[in-house]
């Protein structure tokens, strides 16, 4: 005999009157409110933003504990010093070897780095960066800028408006070559810059 014999629930779905009443109560309560509309686009945007912030925070933490010293040794310390640690989503330089895919979104100035297993690794947000800074950011991941086009906008002239690509997906040949077999390879990210004419 177990200690719970006298009160043990009788089974799935509710067997005793009390359990049946509990099931009815929960169903009534669940039916009492209309479900709000959840917008997939909003969810996706919010998710990307949080991931960017998380990556930026990790980067900042890495700098604080001493990774900054190692990065400075590599060079380009002036580039990093000029920007606040959490200002833009950035990715740690050590992330590069695991990257196998680069997914540039035409409607955002973001380049998404994806691991071979398909998990999102990080997002480089180039929005608002100068072309020089964008090139530096991309070069950390062995990427380069492709065509540069200008578009009228109200922002600062010469800053990145968006990135885009002509093929369905840009794939960078890092990692397992077999995985990338048959896919169109490129390491180029095309950039739209703000002409400031609007």
């Amino acid at each position: 005999m177990t200690p719970y014999d006298d009160v043990r629930p009788s089974g799935r779905g509710g067997g005793t009157p009390f359990e049946q009443e509990l099931v009815s109560a929960m169903n009534d309560f669940a039916d009492s409110a209309t479900a709000p509309a959840f917008e997939p686009d909003v969810i996706a945007r919010s998710s990307r933003r949080k991931r960017g912030v998380a990556v930026a925070a990790l980067t900042a933490a890495a700098v604080i504990v001493g990774a900054g010293t190692a990065l400075a040794t590599i060079g380009h310390s002036a580039q990093g010093a000029g920007r606040a640690a959490g200002a833009e989503p950035t990715v740690p330089a050590t992330a590069s070897p695991a990257i196998t895919e680069v997914n540039a979104r035409w409607h955002f100035a973001q380049v998404e780095l994806v691991t071979q297993k398909g998990h999102g690794l990080a997002t480089i947000d180039l929005a608002g960066l100068t072309l020089k800074d964008a090139k530096t950011m991309l070069s950390k991941h062995n990427l380069r800028t492709g065509s540069i086009t200008w578009a009228p906008c109200t922002g600062r002239r010469g800053t990145v408006l968006m990135v885009f690509h002509g093929t369905p997906r840009l794939v960078k040949a890092v990692g397992d070559p077999d995985y990338l077999k048959g896919m169109k390879l490129t390491d180029t990210v095309n950039v739209d810059l703000c002409s400031g004419n609007r």
Partner: peptide
């Protein structure tokens, strides 16, 4: 956990406990 949870709920509704302990 389930047994304790149901027990706690029943404890708050003693008027229903008489019914609930009579398992079919």
């Amino acid at each position: 956990q389930l047994a304790r949870g149901i027990e706690k709920l029943r404890g708050q509704f003693p008027e229903r406990s008489g019914l609930s302990t009579q398992r079919p």
